[in-house]
Write a protein that binds this DNA or RNA. Structure first.
Lengths: 128, 128
DNA sequence: TTGGTATTTAACCGAGTAGTTATTTAACTG
DNA sequence: CAGTTAAATAACTACTCGGTTAAATACCAA
């Protein structure tokens, strides 16, 4: 997918991730975003353009300011991509104990007694 | 963090993501990994080096083959980073209905009756 | 040792990236 | 209007990246 290229590429730069971290606290202007960095304003402006192009932020207009805010779409896409690999690092995957606990939690009184079938994935549990 | 730079940068290339997708099916050789791509073997070898440097894969030795496999560490780091932004795109955040459902699921019979306090984050629920 | 297979390294090229300074656009303000 | 502030664009430079081909390395097998 084309957008994933742009998104991962945008996230590869520490300045841009720092900008996102700041925006997680709330919408703000370019000046404000630039303050923590030892670089020119045009440089920050470029970073913002990269983030915007990747769908990670959106910009509006307010007098001479261009407040930026986080745009969730691209982040969601990254999370969806990660979904396919979660079983490799998430401890709650492929472990019978956790699986049974989850079953019990969701359907009290329905926990299986015998041997459970091999659990391939339980990732979708997260979403609701 | 230095490693996040390398990891996001590595993931920004579609060839490298395709390689990871193949490795999700199981350990395999460089030849095998290179087959689907219309590029030279050295090019694939370079991609593998990038993935290895980013901590996304690990390589072993078996006769003249160098089988590659997924290394979960870096993927986990990406997931941990995403954690801070999940509330922006995950529907199960900041919504009373889902929160109550979760509470009910985890502690049957303990669901609150009155107005619930503002839910700031429920992300940690995922991990167990 | 000679040869075959798998993989990496070296040297190079064209395109893209992250930064700079200087200039320009856009909007408010007196 | 002129002046000020916020931000984007232009033009440039140094460096990185993804690919190439040709050569080198590592291991097995006869």
């Amino acid at each position: 997918m084309k957008t994933l290229d742009a998104t991962f590429s945008a996230l590869a730069d520490p300045t841009r991730r720092a900008i996102l971290a700041r925006l997680a606290l709330g919408e703000t202007s370019v000046m404000e975003l630039a303050k923590p960095f030892a670089m020119s304003l045009p440089a920050v402006s470029k970073h913002l353009k990269v983030l915007e192009h990747a769908g990670l932020i959106a910009r509006s207009r307010e007098a001479q300011w261009r407040p930026c805010r986080i745009e969730p779409r691209a982040l969601k896409q990254v999370d969806d991509w990660l979904e396919h690999y979660r079983r490799f690092y998430d401890e709650s995957f492929d472990r019978l104990g956790d699986y049974l606990k989850k079953l019990q939690a969701k359907e009290p009184g329905k926990a299986p007694k015998g041997k459970a079938p091999k659990v391939v994935s339980t990732a979708h549990d997260r979403k609701k």
